[in-house]
Amino acid sequence: MSALRILHLTDTHLFGDDSRHYGVVNTASQLAAALAHVSDLAVDLVVVSGDVSEDGTIESYQRVRQLVGDWAEAHGGRAVFAMGNHDRREAFRAVLGGGQPGTEERLPVGDDPARPVVSVTQHDGWRVVVLDTSVPTRGYGNLEPEQLEFLRETLAEPAEHGTVIVMHHAPIDAQTDLLQALALDPADGDALVRLIRGSDVRVVLSGHYHHPVVETIEGIPVVVAPGVANIARALDDPAEESAELAFGGAVVEIRGSRTRVVPFVERIEPASEVFHLGREAVAEIIAAVGRPAR
């Protein structure tokens, strides 16, 4: 029986300098704490499913490549990264390539550095696909037809043990109004679900929502890991948005026909709030930057 163990992290929001997220959070320290929290774990993959960087600088990607890459190697695995809405494609690919170091991108870039960052590789009989749901300068997500076609062609032949998909915006609804306005395009999410139906996809790993969610679609778990930079409050008034100073992640283990997800969230003491947006502020943000009506 083949098994795969993944440390799933997301939304690291690293800077290339000593800047702080929301003026409060030292995201490099948050990432170091998240990795230290699971220091006894042996893994096959360490996945960072988007918003790897906050400022989109070369230096930020170099920092995360060293922190995550070195930890993964020391624990028996390799690192995988995906683009998020805060990432910048040109700097991302300059340091992290197609998101899987040593693996070529699968959509031709040509002379356009703004092309989506997409890759696929095999790991001990497991196939790992990285998709790019980011929309430059926007917070919501899309999957262009060429990415969906690439996925269709890739999944046409099953991998030995199965496929893992990594993408920032999850193909499931958000818990809050703001995050739903910044979610994956519903039509693109439906198209993805049709593609993975009956395929060898074993799990979809996502981020963006900053709190843990596991939802099954077509018998396949979609795992949204909690954020490394902060943890959003998922069950408060959905018309508001707030987050606390904490970090989290998830350990995903696929063994035979079973998929086990163990999320973890650790609060920083003394407890503090990173931000709180009331109904009016959320409504203004949605009107300004939310997905336009079709």
Score class of each variant (00 low, 15 high):
Val120Tyr: 01
Arg106Glu: 13
Gly207Leu: 09
Pro113Glu: 05
Leu107Ile: 15
Leu192Thr: 04
Ser206Lys: 03
Gln147Ser: 09
Arg127Leu: 08
Thr137Gln: 14
Asp132Ala: 10
Gly139Tyr: 14
Leu182Trp: 14
Trp126Thr: 03
Gly97Asn: 01
Arg127Trp: 04
Val118Asn: 00
Asp173Thr: 14
Ser119Cys: 06
Leu184Tyr: 03
Val95Ala: 04
Val128Trp: 03
Val203Gln: 03
Gln122Pro: 02
Thr176Ile: 11
Phe92Val: 11
Leu155Gly: 00
Thr133Ser: 15
Gly189Pro: 01
Asp111His: 12
Pro136Val: 10
Asn142Lys: 13
Ala159Glu: 00
Pro113His: 03
Val166Ile: 11
Glu157Asn: 12
Asp200Cys: 10
Arg138Ala: 15
Gly125Thr: 06
Leu131Arg: 10
Gly98Lys: 01
Thr137Glu: 14
Phe92Tyr: 13
Arg89Glu: 05
Asn142Ser: 13
Thr137Ala: 09
Asp87Glu: 12
Thr163Pro: 02
Val201Pro: 03
Ser134Ile: 06
Val128Gly: 05
Ala181Glu: 10
Gln180Met: 12
Arg197Asp: 15
Ile165Arg: 01
Gly99Asn: 06
Pro113Val: 08
Arg93Gln: 13
Gln122His: 13
Asp87Ser: 10
Val95Tyr: 07
Thr137Val: 14
Ile196Met: 01
Gln147Arg: 09
Glu149Asn: 03
Ala170Leu: 11
Asp188Arg: 07
His75Thr: 10
Pro108Phe: 06
His86Arg: 14
Pro158Asp: 03
Leu155Ala: 00
Arg89Gly: 06
Val117Arg: 09
Arg152Val: 00
Ala156Met: 11
Ala187Phe: 07
Ala191Gly: 02
Val204Glu: 00
Asp132Met: 08
Leu184Val: 04
Phe150Thr: 00
Gly139Thr: 14
Pro186Tyr: 09
Arg194Asp: 15
Ala82Met: 06
